[in-house]
């Protein structure tokens, strides 16, 4: 691979901020002992063995399940949304896309906090419900709130790839299908849906990956009652001070995500996805 001198800054950047940290995490995961001052330490797989404890595997399983649920909801909500936007005329289309993208300009954490003020016992929604004379609802610090937070935060990542694939579908294909006798439903199931699969795969990947590794949403909106794999890693680094175990969990997560990416890639062999990864 011939390298122009202009690419050196990027290589250095990658080396410092991506490759070296990865190697460090790998190093931590396979060692134990006084690693910081390179004192007494030994190479070991104990950290990984420790992860095989049923309680930790349960946390991993729960995280995957929750991530799959939120991905599914994002898909069921996102596909129709993408279709609606793609069918609108150009001016309206851009305005609608903007509606999706502008919240993303705001800090992720702030947006999640905002839900606290909406969903809280004395929050806006319950305020309206109470003033209408009903009993306040328990909307926060439960499983549903976490799902809501995940869907809210990750929905644009499902909508945008699907939308970008849908608008690339040549209108003449739809006309040809109608010309050959296909009703609107048949056009959708036989032409539009199959052609939008690369976008769907992209959307799935872009939602599933952050969903499975999130810890902020489960912490803030779940009231700390639902420990996910992200929380477990955070716990090791911030509270237990066990960087070795935390790194081992991170490596397991990374392997897992790489496997799911490989599976997804099989569906999108031509890389028509339009996603970020």
């Amino acid at each position: 691979m011939k390298l122009k001198w202009t690419s050196y800054p990027y290589i250095v950047w990658m080396a410092i901020f991506i490759i070296i940290p990865l190697l460090l995490i790998l190093f931590f995961s396979i060692t134990s002992g006084d690693v910081f001052r390179l004192g007494e330490f030994q190479f070991t797989l104990d950290n990984f063995k420790r992860f095989m404890n049923p309680i930790y595997l349960k946390v991993l399983g729960r995280s995957i399940t929750l991530a799959l649920q939120s991905t599914a909801i994002c898909f069921l909500l996102g596909y129709p949304m993408a279709m609606i936007i793609s069918k609108a005329e150009l001016k309206k289309r851009n305005a609608m896309i903007l509606l999706f993208v502008v919240p993303m300009w705001m800090n992720f954490l702030l947006r999640t906090y905002a839900w606290l003020t909406l969903l809280g016992r004395n929050g806006l929604i319950n305020y309206i419900i109470k003033s209408l004379g009903f009993e306040p609802l328990s909307l926060i610090y439960n499983n549903k709130a976490i799902l809501l937070g995940m869907v809210y935060n990750f929905l644009p990542f499902m909508v945008l790839p699907i939308y970008s694939v849908l608008i690339k579908i040549d209108n003449s294909l739809i006309e040809a299908a109608e010309d050959l006798g296909a009703s609107k439903l048949e056009v959708f199931t036989r032409i539009i849906l199959p052609l939008s699969i690369p976008g769907i795969v992209s959307g799935f990947t872009m939602v599933f990956m952050p969903a499975v590794s999130t810890f902020v949403i489960s912490s803030l909106l779940g009231g700390g009652k639902y420990m996910l794999i992200g929380n477990l890693v955070e716990q090791q680094f911030l509270w237990s001070g066990d960087w070795n175990f935390g790194s081992a969990i991170s490596i397991v997560m990374m392997i897992f995500i790489l496997i799911s990416m490989a599976i997804m890639a099989k569906f999108d062999e031509d890389e028509k996805g339009g996603g970020l990864w």
Binding site: D170, S172, E175, A176, D179, L180, A182, L195
Partner: peptide, 18 residues
């Protein structure tokens, strides 16, 4: 269109790529 006994050959063929 899907009810008319007419078929079309499109300018860019519009063959279904998938």
């Amino acid at each position: 269109p899907y009810e008319r006994p007419i078929n079309t050959v499109f300018q860019k063929y519009a063959l279904f790529p998938h």
